[in-house]
Structure formats: C-alpha cells, structure tokens
Simulated assay, not measured.
Amino acid sequence: MVKANIVLDAKGLTCPMPIVKTKKKMKDLKAGEILEIEATDKGSTADLQAWANSTGHEYLGTESEGEILHHFLRKGGEHSSESTPSIPEVSLEAFKQKVESEESLNILDVRELDEYEEAHIPGVVHIPLGEVEKRSNELNKDAEIYIICHSGRRSEMAAQTMKKQGFKKVINVVPGMRDWTGKTE
C-alpha cells in the first residue's frame, strides 16, 4: 500500500462529498505529499481520477480492502490549477421543461452503470465519467450537449474534460438525477 502523509475518511459519503472533502483537505498538503482517501462510494474512483486530472494533481491509484476503497493522490506543484474554465449550467427545472417539450436534445449521462440502470432519462447516451476522455469521440463536438450525473459534480468534470477536447457547447445540468422528477426508463 502507498504511504500517505494524510488520510481522509470519506466512508459512507456519496457524490459529490468525497470530492468536496478531498479538495478541502488537499489544501493542507505541500506539493508532492500524498493524500489517502478512504471511501465506500463505488463512483469515487472515477470521480477522484477525473478531479485529479482536471486540477493538476496526480492520481496514483486505488486499492480495495473489502468494501473500503483506498484512493491515493499526490498534490501537484505550484502550477496545479484549482480553478478551471467555467462551464455553463442549466437548472434541473429548465432542463426538465426542455425534455418534456420533446425538443431534440443531446443528453449525456455520466453516472456509473448501476446508477444508470436504476433509472435514466429516455434517449440519453451513457458514458461513465471514467470513460469520457476515451469515448468522447462517440459524440458530436459541434452539438449542444447537456451533461447529467447524480448531483452535478461529475457532470461538471466531464464537461471540463470535453471542453479540453474541443467540445464547444457543453452544459452542466444542476443538481442532476438525484432530484429528477420527469420520465425515466
């Protein structure tokens, strides 16, 4: 197991809390030091990988011990970026109106497979956050794409990744499926 300078207990927390706590705790570390995040949320692996990638920190890997995931991140140097370009957002209410108007929309759901299978908006494209970077070529870079997750955090990270790949019109749906009351499959 990797030797960490600080251990963060995020067990029992679900998206977006492991990321929120990690971001806060990372400020206590010096460049090069390692943070271990103990989590039980299966989606935390992809979330932390994407967050580290988008902020200039290094994702070192994840080790499992029963139900507990031990994630390891190395703090980036002085050039690591905690601020990233802003992504346009749409409220869940306004987004629901667009969906219900039966307007032709491109919707990307970036939740994990088990979350997606539980319930999703009809007609969405499903690409889990951890696969967005590799699979974004399945999407039209010139189209307006609404990105949704559970709470709005993973979808924001997916939008950041896609923006770096040349997507021009990505829109984050906030807060996400957690509060969705429209039709689902």
Rank of each mutant, 00 (worst) to 15 (best):
M17H: 04
L29G: 01
K98D: 05
A39G: 14
A10L: 03
L35E: 00
L35A: 02
G182I: 11
H150Y: 11
K30W: 04
Y59T: 01
G130P: 07
T84Q: 11
S83Y: 15
L8T: 00
G123N: 10
S155V: 09
A158C: 15
E144Y: 09
K23V: 05
E144C: 13
D9F: 09
D41F: 14
S81W: 13
H126L: 05
K75Q: 06
H70G: 07
D114R: 15
A119V: 13
F72M: 09
S44D: 03
P175H: 02
V170M: 04
Q165G: 08
A94T: 08
I148R: 06
I87H: 07
A39Y: 03
A31I: 09
D9I: 04
L69M: 15
K21F: 03
E133F: 10
N137V: 11
K96L: 14
N106L: 07
L129W: 03
P175K: 02
M177F: 12
Y59A: 05
K96H: 08
S81H: 15
G130A: 05
L105E: 04
G130N: 01
R135M: 11
L92V: 12
I34A: 08
V170F: 02
H120W: 09
L60N: 02
Y116P: 12
L60S: 03
R111D: 02
R74K: 14
I171Q: 00
K42V: 10
M26T: 00
I148V: 15
S155M: 11
V132C: 07
L8V: 01
Y146H: 06
G76W: 08
E138H: 06
A119C: 14
T62R: 08
V170D: 00
W180N: 03
E33S: 07
E67T: 13
I127S: 01
S54V: 14
I148P: 04
P18G: 03
L60E: 00
T22L: 09
S136A: 11
V110I: 11
R135A: 11
G152N: 06
V90Y: 07
P175A: 03
E112P: 07
H150P: 05
D41P: 10
K30V: 03
K163N: 08
